[in-house]
Design a protein around this nucleic acid. Structure first.
Lengths: 336, 336
DNA sequence: CTGAAAGCGCTTACAG
DNA sequence: CTGAAAGCGCTTACAG
C-alpha cells in the first residue's frame, strides 16, 4: 500500500518556487515572504506532503527523540511488569511530547535484546533507563555501556556511576513513621529488601528508622525471601514476620507491589487491616486504590519525575545530572 | 557531551579498505572476503562505530520501526490509563523487538497532540492505534486521517473503515454464560455500555446472551452511567442494578476495570462475592489477580495479539487486514 | 527575499 | 571480491 511520497521538490514545483524556499517556508525560517509562505503551505497541504524525518535528522544531526529503555525480569510477561514503571513511562511520554519530541521505547530483559546504542546510532538524542533493579545482568550491561561512553540517565540507582533521579525517599520514610506514631502504633516493622542494588529501598528504610528513633522506637526489619515478583515476596515476608513478631501492628513496605503482597499475607493470616495491623506502601500505583481496603501510600509526583528525567537526559551540563529528587506525599486511604 | 561520532569513512581508513566495503561488510552482504569482513568488524569495534540510522533509513526508504498510538481520556493522568492497554503495549513491544524493529510510542488525548503522520514522515513503516474508545474526538481524527490516506491498524473497532483486530468476544461471552449456568446461577446480569463505539462490548454481551438463551435464560443488561473511568462506572452500575434487581446472583462485566468497580459496589452493598453474587470480568489485567477475592476473567492471549497486530500493520495484503480474532480463555479465580 | 549548490552518512548499481 | 560514484531528501551557507 506504500504510495510514492511527495518530496519538497514536488511541493516546489506546485508552488512555483525553488526547493530551498519550500524548506525555509515550512520550517518557519525568518525572511520568507508571507505570501510565498502561504503558497508553499497550500501546495504542501494539497499534496499531503510531510517532511522526511530521516533526511531532516541526517542534515540537522538531531532526531528530536528520546529513547526509553525499561529493564524487565527475564521470562516475565509484559502484563506482569510493575505498573509503577508503566506509569513512569507514561509521564515520560507526556514530558517528551510536550517538547515536540518522539519517544522510542525498548523493553529489555536478557542478552538477546540488550541494546544501548540508540544515541550512538543517531536514533535518539538522549536515553533514559528505568525498570527493575533485580535484573543484574541488564544493569551490568548498562554499566559497561556507560563506561564505554554511551550516556544515559536512570530512575533509581542500580549502580554508582549513573546519572540518576530518585524520590525523596527519606522524607517518605519519615512521613510513614510519623503517621504510625500519630495513630498510636508502636510495634512497627519495615518490609523490604536490604542490600538491594535499588538504593531507594535503603533510603526509605533509613528515613523510616531515623524518624522512629526520635520517638524511641525501633522497627523490626523483615527482608523478603526471593520470589517470582514483589507481590509474592510481600506475601512470604509477612508470614515470616508474623511468626517471629506476632505482636506487629504496623508495617511500612518499601513499594506498593510489596505492600499489596503484605496485605494479602495479612488477610491470609487472619489479621484485620487496619484494625490489627496498619499498612503503608510506596509508589502510588493505581492497583493500590483498587485494593480492599485501599492502600495508604507514599506517592511520588510522577509528572515531575517524567519532566525531570527528560530534562536531565537532554541537558549536557554535568551539574544538573545527579542528585535530583522527586517530592512524595502521603496519601491516606484505608490501610493506615 | 555529544562527541563526534565516527563514520563509515573512519572505519574504512582504519581497516584499509573503501567505504563501500565497510558498508557491505557490516551489513553482512554476500561476496565479502571473510578476512576483510573481520578486519572491518574489528576496526568498527575499536572506533565504537554504529551505523547512522537516519542515513541508512533515508537510503533504504525503510525505518524498521512501528509507531504505536495510545488514545487516552482527556485530562487523565498517565497512571490512570487502563492497564490493559499498557499490557497490550508491552506485548506489541515484544513482537516489534522480535523482528528487530523499533517502537515509537505516542499517547494522544486532544487536538494539541493528535498526530497520525508517523508513516508519512518516514519515521515508521506502519502504525498501530490502541486505547480508549471513549475519546470520540481522537477517533474522529484518526478516521479522517485514514480517509486521507494515512493507514493504520487498530485494536477494537472504534469505527467501521478501520483495519481492526479483536478478541474472540462472542466465545468469551459464551464461556462466561456456561460457567454461570454450570455453577448454578440463574439470576444473571450483564454490566457494560451499550451503543459503545467499542463494538467489542456488544460482541461480549451478544455471545453471553445467546449462550444463556440456549438454557432459557435472559440476562438483565445494566448500562453504566457516565463516570470518570470504567471503575467508577462499575461501582455506579451495580448500585442501580441491585436497586432494580436485588435478586441478581451473577454478573458478567464487559471489562476487568468495570468488573473491579462492580466488585467494589457489591462489597459496598454488603453482598458477599462469590457466595451471594458471582462475578466474571474480561481482559485478564494484573490488578484482577490482586483483588479480594481474585477476579475470575476471560483472558485474551496478549502475546498473540501483539504479534498479530504487528504482523497486520506490516502486511500490505488487504486480505489479512480485517477480522483477525485473538483467542480468549476463562481463568477461574475467586469471584466465580 | 530567493535560488543554485554543497553536504549530512549511508547503500548499491556499475565497473573492473 | 572491491572501489568510485550516484543518490536518498532534506537544511543552510553563499550569492545575488
Amino acid at each position: 500500500m506504500k504510495t510514492l511520497r511527495p518530496t519538497s521538490f514536488d511541493v516546489a514545483e506546485r508552488a512555483g518556487v525553488s526547493q530551498s524556499t519550500v524548506s525555509r517556508a515550512l520550517r518557519g525560517s525568518p525572511g520568507v515572504n508571507a505570501e510565498t509562505r502561504a503558497r508553499v503551505s497550500a501546495a504542501a497541504r494539497e499534496l499531503g506532503y510531510v517532511v522526511d524525518r530521516h533526511a531532516s535528522s541526517l542534515r540537522l544531526k538531531s532526531s528530536e527523540t528520546i529513547a526509553l529503555v525499561t529493564i524487565c525480569r527475564p521470562g516475565e510477561d509484559r502484563s506482569a511488569i510493575n505498573p509503577f514503571y508503566f506509569a513512569l513511562l507514561g509521564s515520560i511520554a507526556a514530558a517528551t511530547s510536550a517538547r515536540g519530541f518522539n519517544l522510542l521505547v525498548s523493553f529489555q530483559e536478557n542478552a538477546d535484546n540488550f541494546r544501548a546504542d540508540f544515541v550512538a546510532s543517531g536514533l535518539a538524542d538522549a536515553m533514559i533507563v528505568i525498570g527493575t533493579t533485580s535484573n543484574r545482568a541488564a544493569w551490568k550491561y548498562f554499566a559497561d555501556a556507560q563506561a564505554s561512553g554511551l550516556d544515559f540517565v536512570c530512575w533509581g540507582s542500580p549502580g554508582s556511576p549513573f546519572h540518576w533521579m530518585r524520590s525523596e525517599n527519606d522524607i517518605g520514610g519519615q512521613l510513614a513513621a510519623e503517621h504510625f506514631v500519630a495513630t498510636g502504633r508502636r510495634r512497627i516493622a519495615f518490609v523490604g529488601p536490604a542490600q538491594s542494588p535499588q538504593r531507594q529501598f535503603d533510603e526509605r528504610r533509613d528515613g523510616f528508622t531515623a524518624a522512629l528513633g526520635l520517638h524511641g522506637l525501633t522497627p523490626v526489619v523483615a527482608e523478603p525471601p526471593a520470589a517470582a515478583d514483589r507481590h509474592a515476596q510481600g506475601v512470604a515476608a509477612v508470614q515470616a514476620l508474623l511468626a517471629a513478631h506476632p505482636e506487629t501492628n504496623a508495617i511500612f513496605a518499601a513499594s506498593d507491589m510489596l505492600a499489596l503482597g503484605v496485605l494479602q499475607g495479612l488477610k491470609d493470616a487472619g489479621r484485620r487491616v487496619p484494625d490489627d495491623v496498619a499498612l503503608i506502601g510506596f509508589d502510588g500505583i493505581r492497583a493500590g486504590t483498587l485494593a480492599d481496603p485501599a492502600l495508604t501510600t507514599l506517592e511520588p509526583d510522577l509528572d515531575a519525575a517524567g519532566e525531570a528525567l527528560v530534562a536531565m537526559a537532554l541537558e549536557d551540563d554535568e551539574h544538573t545530572r545527579s542528585g535530583t529528587r522527586i517530592p512524595v506525599h502521603l496519601v491516606v486511604r484505608g490501610t493506615a
